[in-house]
Design a protein around this nucleic acid. Sequence first.
DNA 1: GTACACATGTAACCGGTTACATGATTGC
DNA 2: GCAATCATGTAACCGGTTACATGTGTAC
Lengths: 190, 190
Amino acid sequence: MRRGRRTETLSLLEGALLGLLHAQPQSGYQLRKAFQETPLAHFSDSPGSIYPALARLRARGRIRGTVERAGTLRPRERFALTRDGELTLQTWLSEPVTRETVRHGTDEAMLRFAFLEGALGRRATTGFLRDLARELADYLEWLRAWHKARARAQTLTGRLALESGIASVDAQLRWAHRAARRMAAVEKAP
Amino acid sequence: MRRGRRTETLSLLEGALLGLLHAQPQSGYQLRKAFQETPLAHFSDSPGSIYPALARLRARGRIRGTVERAGTLRPRERFALTRDGELTLQTWLSEPVTRETVRHGTDEAMLRFAFLEGALGRRATTGFLRDLARELADYLEWLRAWHKARARAQTLTGRLALESGIASVDAQLRWAHRAARRMAAVEKAP
DNA sequence: GTACACATGTAACCGGTTACATGATTGC
DNA sequence: GCAATCATGTAACCGGTTACATGTGTAC
């Protein structure tokens, strides 16, 4: 959906593909199944989204495909990250967590977090969680202030919808704190 | 992002615009500000998204614009729903809440809910909340089962990310129950 | 022998993003 | 005088959706 001027920002789908391929080289079909069957849903599982995305990533040198069972009547192409793809993934995962990251929805942040350990190691997660918790707390405070100030001017369902958002952000913030504690505990006893 | 074959499904942005214009006829600039300043964030506030979307809706007869302060040097165009736009909005808001609705993220469901009272009245919300709660409960159960079954096979951050999703859905489900009770209470004493 | 899972694509459409463009008004 | 706000657009790009297309392997 967007393209950095020079830095080649990844779309969510491309990020997800790189992250999955980093964890485990696999075919387009297996990636489709992952989008169907795992909680990674919300990505389309249609071939029309995944195969072109893979072709793009390959054209840009992020991934490389090797054909398996070439002689047989049912070959398949297994994709893996190139060194360049690994760097791209790491760069994407390292982008700072800002106000915008949480304002536009936490999907991207959580997707990146899911891949953090695999691609950057456990140490990298501490800062991520700290920044995420900071921004979530700020955002939550702002949402609550907004709710307090404007609650009466809205319809009942409008108000309730806002409260749903507040409850969601609150849950994510609590989760971030729990997760940070878990990470700290694990770091002491690896 | 998509187009129903014949039924002219609305994009999220178009739905948001119709909902906002139904609540209060206003100009493109005011809509932009709404996306900047209210918790409706996550829609782009850039003129390049809103003005073309308004032009589309007008071309399809959903909205009508009237130029205000026409003689002055700073005119502006205030948009309002046509009768057809009202019907389109109502149809969109009436679409059933299914498994897919929650699997792909609850953004659309919550956006629609926010406009429900204004466009369909309080009575319409009861069924919506019931369906939403049902689907959220199913989805939550599925997520928990998945977590239990696959937790060990994942990286730590992968597991934590899943737990974040579970916490979020859980929070939304609790909210849905609270909201249903609030609606019921209000219906008795309108 | 037929339905379903495996496996990979292409092509048209279109909506959102980014960047560019223009000019008036208000407040300091 | 200059910056910020008001106000509205256009144009190129490109990625995701939908629909179409094709053929094999396996289990009943």
